[in-house]
Nucleic acid binder design. Structure first.
Lengths: 161, 161
DNA sequence: CGTGAAATAAAAGAGCC
DNA sequence: GGCTCTTTTATTTCACG
């Protein structure tokens, strides 16, 4: 699935679906200035090419009792393949871990973790995170307030092709 | 919109829609063990209560030319209301900023930023981020590799009500 | 909460510009 | 590549048990 070139209409389609995945094809077509048939063809192509990866419902974390978000920086003492892979797989398998990135800078990995409360985080930290393979240092940054979250990707910032 | 209590079926509905927002009501009902009518009633209630906030298409960042993700820690020198509010609004308005949280720890704010490449980040940093009101220090953590992203919220971790 | 029927809307396809 | 029109299919909605 190589880089299918995206034209202006594709970007408008992606932008619209990113805001509202439930748009009917007819409405979407109207919004991007196409008739329904070619619009649907493009959407299918974008799906098959892997540009659109998923359709998801977003939930209000606090409304479902997941009031605590923590950004956790983790340093590991080995970067060789075997240990690195073991660490990554273990982290990816944790349901509380919403995202995990290998990053430059002070920490090696930066994780976003979502859970009900501090007690749950204490348990996760002691029972799981500190026991992950190769962990040298853990820094916990608790989210006190969310200014913006789940922002859409800035399609406007991509160079026009 | 107070905390509507969620039972086991609600959680199953949320969990399913979080994975696939395009499930038809019939399929969703089958998956959660309900018939279509009450299932749809519950979904509408969850939407109206603000538990389901949005339906979105997720896009492959690299496929659309947004290959660079940066986690940016920002320290600000004032926490008083006027300046804090100005900072937050300015940040929230930037399309490249996917998320922004007030956090405990070394930085005051932690931003996730998505853009095409380093050149774009250089411009954003010099022209915009460094000029935000009250900024004292900026630490850029570049994402080298994504282990997990866009994880679903761990509904299993919520206490059963 | 479940069932079933009726109304609506959406997706898919053929043929043409 | 896009447009229109038609067919087919599925989804929502509602009244009632």
């Amino acid at each position: 699935m190589p880089n299918l070139p995206l034209d202006a209409i594709d970007r408008r389609i992606l932008s619209a679906l990113q805001r509202d995945a439930r748009l009917s094809n007819v409405d979407l077509a109207a919004e991007v200035g196409l008739s329904p048939s070619p619009c649907l063809r493009r959407v299918r192509l974008l799906e098959e090419a892997g540009v659109i990866t998923d359709y998801r419902a977003l939930l209000d974390r606090t409304a479902i009792g997941l009031g605590l978000t923590v950004f956790v920086g983790i340093k590991v003492d080995r970067h060789d393949d075997a240990h690195a892979t073991a660490f990554r797989e273990a982290v990816a398998a944790l349901p509380q871990v919403v995202s995990c990135h290998l990053v430059s800078g002070e920490s090696d990995f930066l994780l976003q973790i979502v859970l009900p409360d501090l007690a749950a985080y204490e348990r996760l930290l002691l029972d799981t995170l500190l026991k992950l393979p190769g962990v040298k240092d853990i820094r916990s940054n608790f989210v006190l307030n969310t200014v913006k979250s789940m922002g859409t990707l800035p399609l406007d910032q991509v160079a026009r092709s």
